[in-house]
Structure formats: structure tokens, C-alpha cells
Design a protein around this nucleic acid. Structure first.
Lengths: 346, 346
DNA sequence: CTGAAAGCGCTAACAT
DNA sequence: ATGTTAGCGCTTTCAG
């Protein structure tokens, strides 16, 4: 591996001239520059990152921590992030935290030791105080999908609350009065917001809310749904707050031969591959998943390469309500965009 | 950030004793070791990777190059790989090549410059000669899903041919004689193998083969299927050679209201999320996706940490034929394992 | 078994 | 505008 000094020798100039040409740090005379470039090409010089980092510079690497790389939502984010990073000349160090806050924290630490230039994180836990120190350590951080509580970092989000309200309102417009909200019991920002959106839509329409929590404490969909569907004012519509829940609900409804949307209508949060493959096709809120990732990278690069002292900002991207058949709509195919794209300062 | 020298000062020993304790390189007296460990804990020392790498050591980083991180198959691999790597104390640098051989090559180069310890790759192109140089450069490489032609690297694969034969034979057992194979036209190892499996099964049963190529040259499924289904000896069963194809076929069959399996039976390569969500449920070959990833890591670590001079080997993992309803089976739920798990030496 | 010195490739700071 | 020097934190080498 040829070094900078080798280039200098071949070009017949000092090492610093070479360094300056490579990094564009300062003005170099055109002749020198030409000599250096020629020498670089000739011996195939490539700068050594390790030496640069050792000198106190940050590595041209972005860190990405997501709960699960196999999850379609996170995977699509990761893909977009990696691509955007590559286009900007950065490599991406990726970690799946497995929804464990301690893994998340520990891996963030390792990344910082490696002097990554910035970190994008879809935080798992609710206690993110750890990342405060990171920010103090000067590491630019952007959170994705969920804000990093208490930490002054940029965030790229969608308005889960408003989007949920939109779906539920759509169901209400269909004349439904008993709408069941199915939600997993994990305390997560996005899920709480989706619940809030449901609540608000129902309240504004003066309807009674009904929430079915799913999880180890409350039980599965299959365990709870029969009782609910047998109850006195039987729900005529279901709002499932995530794709995982949607799949469970669909399986159960299919198993019990309950017709959608005739016996019960369905509209859900998160569009998913199978949504248009099953009959009826499912009405769903679609998030601009790849855009979220790209936006996160652009915010991060702005911090890294530009002014990192600007106040943190939250970017809210638009969601779309994709109207298909499961809500009871005759003509599928229309889309309703959220008001979104607000850029709120904290 | 405290350095090794700081530790030495605090512990009252030379730097080399500290280095030896940290790396376990050589014998150190118990007392010295204790002093050093105490000092490390006290000032919170963490070794600086960059300095180590600068000294000529490899970084504790694995590289992973896949065609597309958003694809469920690759994403699941990536997730398993990252997790296994983390457990072994390695970080993972991930790149989506976007199915472009030049990106793949260029990113591999960057990774090598960063002195990664090993590389796992799901190669996109057919011309992999580039990686020959990499191997010569001493970088351990494991290819996944597809072998790296001409390169003496370990590979973790499934037997696409045998698995395809299995599916097609199953269709034949149902009494089908006109079985259409739908395949995309890209020249890819796995697809070629799947085609070969179909051919072999048909030949052994003395049946006439019929292949529908899909792609920009030949046309889409929607463009070609009507003519095929209107033809004289109409196929009574379809074997779709990948999940992407399966989705297209399903959409088309649904659109034309063709009943599965009554009018036409269907069995496919690649199990996918929606397979059990649609009616009828789809009979499919399932690959042990996460296992492929884990096995790749274990092979790679073996090379990195152990003898890297052993001859390259190919590990073939078992697939499963998951029998559901789309093939015409009455009782779904059975599974047929491939003979697999052969470990072939090259 | 332990320590001192040299140097990996680079750039900040100074000197010309 | 260009060159020289020192040193980032570590490990290899050589002496003790």
C-alpha cells in the first residue's frame, strides 16, 4: 500500500503538498497539483483512514441502530439510509438492537469509540438519557420514527396521531359507530400517538371508544377477539394500529369466516406487501419509509458538514391514507395525503 | 479518552505490560496484571482501534454486501449476520449494491481499505474475478446464496436444484402433466439452478417442459400469461421460481378470477409473509434464511481466527417444502425436508 | 518477565 | 505556496 510519503517522493514535492491536494485543504500551485495527481494515479495511492482517525478526525462512517433489520419497515429505512450515505461518500455501520435498550446503548458506545461521523437511531427504549452524553461528546445524532426524549437531537417523524385520526374518521364516515382499536401494549411513542389519534377522532364524533390491548399481559388477538365480537354492541369496524397486529387480526377473521368489510370493516396503520394480495385489499396508512431514511441522512450530513450548533429540529413527513376495499369503499384507489411536511422547531 | 500510556502511568508499569494484559499477548506476572486491570477500570480505558489498525492489524469489523437491504430475504440474512457478528465482538459494515456489480466492487474496495477482518457477500454479477485479488490480498470471504465463480472462497448455499425438483415432483404427484415454469430472465445462479431442477423433474417424468421467461426482454407476467392460458394444452399447474414472480402471478390470476388450485395449481420457490394470509395458502419452498446468515458468519470467523489456509468449502443447508393448499393438497401442514446439509468440499 | 524506543500514515502547527 | 517536524495510540523489536 503506497503512502502519502511515497507519493511525495514520486512527485518530487513535500508530503504536505500531497496532503493539501488530497484534502483540498489549502491553495496549491497548479503545477504542484498536477505533479501530485499524476503521482497518485501512477502508484495508485489511497488515503489511510486509520491514520486520519488517529490524528483526531472522524471516520467517514455513519452509524445506524434499528430495533430489527429483518422488519420490513426498518429494513426499507436502512436500505435508503445506506444508499444515501454511500452517495455522500460514507459507509454505514449497522446494528440491530433486538429491541433491547442495553444493546442499543452498548453498540452506540462502540460506534463512538470508532469515531463515527454521525448516528441515526430508531430508539427502542423510552429512557434515552444516555444519548445526552453522546451529544455532549459532539456526535451528531438524528432519531428516526420516534423522538429521542430529553435529547437535543434532530428527528424525522410522521404524524402518527393525525394519520390515525384520518383512518378512524374515514371509518366513521362510513357510518360506523362501534370501532375497535387494536393496539399492542408496549409503551412506545408511535403506538401511543396512534392510540391518541383514535381517541381524538372518536371523541370528536362523540362515539364510545373501545381498545383491545394485545401482548403478554392482556393476551393475544385470538384470545380476546371472540369475546369482543360476541359482546352486546358488537364492533362493526376495526382499526389495527400496526402491521403485526393487522396480520393477527386477518388470520383470526379468516379462521372464523368473518366477511370483510360486510360483517366487519378494517382499516390499519402501516401498508404492507400482502395488503393488495389478499381479498379484500386492505385500506392502510402508508408511511414514506424510504423518504424517512433519506431525510435522516440529509439532516445528519447537514450537521456533520455544516453548522452543528443550530437548534435541533423535527421534520414531519406526510403519510398517505390508501383507500382500498377493506373499509367498505366501493371504488378503491383514492389516496388522502396527510397535512404533514410541517417542519417544527422544538 | 484515556490512553494505554495513561493506564501505564496510573498502574506504575510500562506501556508494554498494559498492552500485554489487554491483548493477552504474553505472560504477565499476576501482580502486574492486577495493577493494570485496576488502573484500566479506574480510568475507564478503552483501546483505540484506529491505532491498532494503523499498526497493521485488521479492524474488528465484518463487511456485508447484499443486492438490496429492503428485500425480505436479504434483510433477514443481514439481520442474522449482524447479530452473530455482534455476539462475536464484531461490528458490521453493510452495503446494498443495488444489484450493480460496479457498486459491489467499489464498495468492497473501500471496505478493504478500512482493513475489515472479513467479507460476506451475496454476489450480484457473474464476473467475480475481482474478488480473486481480494482473496490474494488475504481477506477471508464467504459468499452467500450464490457461489463466487472462480474464486476460492467458502460458500453457504441451499440446493436450489433439488428443492425445485421437489416442488415440481410434488405437482406431478398431483397428476399434473402440463406444468408451467415461470422464471425471470436474469442470468443468476439461483434462478438457473431452479430452472434446471424443474427441467430435470419434468424430464424424469417424461413430461413436456414449458417455461415462461419474465423480464424486460420477454415481457411481464400479465402480458404473457393470457396467451399461455388460452393455448391448446393449457397448463394445469404453475411453478413460480421466486417470490417476486409469485406475487405477479397471484395478482394476475386474481384479476382474471382463475381459481387456485381448481383451475390451476400453484407451488413456488421462496416462502413469504403473505403466503399464509391469502386464500388458498401457498405451497412453497422455504429456505433457512437466518441460518444461512449465521452459518456464513461462523465460517468467516473460522477463517479469520483460525486456519485460513484450509481449502474452501461449500456448505449446503436444507430447504423445506411447505405443503399448503395452492398445490391442491387436501390437508395442509406437512413439510418435506430436503436431503441437504451436505458439506461438499470443492 | 518487563521496559524503552521506533514507527505505522497522516495532518496541525510552525517555518521558510 | 511549500516544506519540516512532531506526535496521534498502539505494537513490534530489541535490550535488560
Amino acid at each position: 500500500m503506497p503512502t502519502l510519503a511515497d507519493v511525495a517522493k514520486v512527485a518530487g514535492v513535500g508530503v504536505m503538498s500531497v496532503s493539501r491536494v488530497v484534502n483540498g485543504t489549502r491553495k496549491v500551485s497548479p503545477e504542484t497539483e498536477e505533479k501530485v495527481r499524476a503521482a497518485i494515479r501512477r502508484i495508485g495511492y489511497e488515503p489511510n483512514e486509520a491514520a486520519r482517525v488517529l490524528k483526531g478526525h472522524r471516520a467517514k462512517i455513519l452509524g445506524l441502530i434499528v430495533p430489527d433489520l429483518a422488519d420490513p419497515f426498518f429494513a426499507t429505512c436502512a436500505n435508503a439510509i445506506q444508499e444515501a450515505a454511500r452517495e455522500a461518500g460514507y459507509m454505514t455501520l449497522m446494528v440491530a438492537s433486538g429491541h433491547q435498550a442495553n444493546v442499543e446503548r452498548q453498540q452506540a458506545e462502540v460506534m463512538m469509540q470508532r469515531q463515527i461521523a454521525g448516528l441515526i437511531i430508531i430508539p427502542t427504549g423510552l429512557e434515552n438519557d444516555y444519548f445526552l452524553n453522546a451529544r455532549v461528546g459532539g456526535l451528531p445524532i438524528v432519531s428516526l420514527d420516534r423522538p429521542l426524549e430529553n435529547v437535543d437531537a434532530d428527528a424525522v417523524l410522521v404524524d402518527n396521531r393525525e394519520a390515525s385520526m384520518g383512518v378512524v374518521e374515514h371509518l366513521i364516515e362510513h357510518g360506523h359507530k362501534d370501532i375497535l382499536c387494536i393496539l399492542d401494549e408496549y409503551r412506545m411513542f408511535t403506538k401511543q400517538e396512534r392510540l391518541a389519534g383514535y381517541m381524538q377522532a372518536m371523541r370528536e364524533a362523540k362515539l364510545t371508544t373501545r381498545v383491545c390491548m394485545v401482548g403478554p399481559l392482556s393476551g393475544t388477538v385470538a384470545e380476546q377477539l371472540p369475546a369482543i365480537l360476541a359482546s352486546a354492541p358488537k364492533p362493526t369496524a376495526i382499526f389495527a394500529a400496526s402491521d403485526l397486529l393487522t396480520v393477527q387480526v386477518l388470520r383470526h377473521l379468516q379462521g372464523m369466516h368473518i366477511a370483510i368489510p360486510d360483517e366487519i370493516a378494517l382499516a390499519v396503520f402501516d401498508d404492507f406487501d400482502a395488503a393488495t394480495l389478499i381479498t379484500p385489499q386492505i385500506t392502510a396508512v402508508r408511511q414514506p419509509v424510504a423518504d424517512l431514511g433519506r431525510k435522516a441522512v440529509s439532516l445528519l450530513l447537514q450537521r456533520i458538514e455544516g453548522d452543528s450548533t443550530l437548534p435541533a429540529k423535527q421534520v414531519v413527513l406526510q403519510t398517505e391514507l390508501i383507500i382500498r376495499a377493506s373499509c367498505g369503499c366501493e371504488l378503491a384507489g383514492s389516496r388522502i395525503k396527510s397535512k404533514g411536511l410541517a417542519i417544527r422547531k422544538r
